[in-house]
């Protein structure tokens, strides 16, 4: 055996996508000095935070061999409800005209509850009726979106309290709040997946659902919890994006589910279940954010950006499959 070559290959295959990310950052930095400013890196982190948070939950969902197409819609619904409860007194078109300014915790809790509830409905359908996740969440996609339109009558909800604005635009120790929240959720999800029974069982459910059942894992409860957690993260993401725009639109985040799925997939989470990591989802989200940020800065036309994004997703999966094939 040629040991050196072997181990190098091993490292490259295991962390290949990290190298891709570093390479992208280096190339962009050379091409455009303004790319490598601290400010821009914080920007990238902030920009990736919204779908990055979704990708964290999507990692759990995909490890368990599922899919959630409804996260964009759940985000939209949670966002408009949170915004309606978070309007400031000066708002010209108040959703609740007679209501005073509520403390920020109320709209935040509302968003998390709405998100979790939608997720729980997804999870309940999947776990207890046995309909495929693809179908259940596809249904939820249009249902949640419909409710968002009904709730707002199709109009944006704006002029939110300063506290809400702080969540989207404030900074702690120079780090933008969305990035702070993203980092916290990364840590929580990482611990959840790696250091708790729940996490171990997520892998087991995706790895072999029958064996999990026989091993005493409550598979139905697991599925229910996984989708509920996904919904909760959609709620958190909704708070962040509402804060960033200091407003919410019922059509918000359409298609974000695909970005989240793409991030997760680029990060090496396998759709055949049982394989995936939180850091993979983070790197995947960053790859997409760096790409979008970088290409805009370089002035690459919108049309081409879409093509490049698609290619990156496909190439990432090919690399990943090669990695798994080689092991056999």
């Amino acid at each position: 055996m040629q040991k050196n070559k072997f181990s190098f290959q091993n490292i490259f295959e295991k962390y290949g996508i990290v190298f891709v990310l570093i390479l992208m950052i280096v190339l962009m930095s050379i091409a455009k000095p303004s790319f490598r400013t601290m400010n821009n890196f914080l920007n990238i982190l902030t920009q990736s935070s919204i779908y990055g948070i979704l990708a964290l939950g999507m990692t759990l969902v995909i490890i368990s061999k599922g899919i959630d197409l409804s996260v964009g819609s759940i985000l939209g619904l949670s966002a408009v409800i949170a915004a309606s409860l978070g309007q400031s007194m000066t708002a010209s078109n108040k959703y609740f005209p007679d209501m005073g300014e509520l403390p920020i915790i109320i709209p935040v809790i509302a968003a998390l509850l709405v998100g979790s509830l939608c997720g729980a409905i997804n999870g309940g359908l999947i776990a207890f009726t046995g309909i495929p996740a693809f179908i259940a969440t596809l249904g939820m996609t249009t249902i949640a979106r419909g409710f968002a339109y009904i709730y707002t009558d199709g109009k944006p909800i704006s002029t939110l309290t300063p506290a809400f604005k702080f969540i989207g635009q404030g900074k702690i120790l120079g780090i933008p709040m969305p990035a702070v929240i993203y980092l916290i959720m990364i840590i929580i999800t990482w611990v959840l997946l790696n250091n708790t029974r729940f996490g171990k069982r997520v892998y087991a459910v995706g790895g072999n659902i029958n064996a999990a059942e026989v091993s005493g894992v409550n598979v139905k409860k697991m599925l229910f919890l996984i989708y509920t957690y996904m919904g909760l993260l959609a709620g958190i993401s909704a708070v962040v994006s509402t804060g960033r725009m200091v407003s919410a639109q019922p059509g918000l985040a359409a298609g974000y589910e695909l970005t989240a799925i793409a991030s997760t997939t680029i990060g090496g989470t396998s759709h055949s279940g049982g394989i995936g990591t939180v850091w993979g989802a983070v790197v995947g989200a960053l790859v997409l954010a760096v790409m979008r940020n970088g290409m805009t800065i370089l002035g690459i036309h919108s049309y081409w950006q879409q093509i490049v994004e698609g290619l990156v997703i496909i190439i990432a999966v090919i690399l990943d499959m090669r990695k798994n094939a080689r092991k056999k």
């Binding site: 920007n43 920009q47 960033r244 725009m245 407003s247 639109q249 059509g251 805009t296």
Partner: peptide, 12 residues
């Protein structure tokens, strides 16, 4: 979309 206007402007 408002969110896209935001992100694009940041990058600009």
């Amino acid at each position: 979309q408002r969110d896209q206007g935001l992100t694009i402007t940041e990058n600009w």
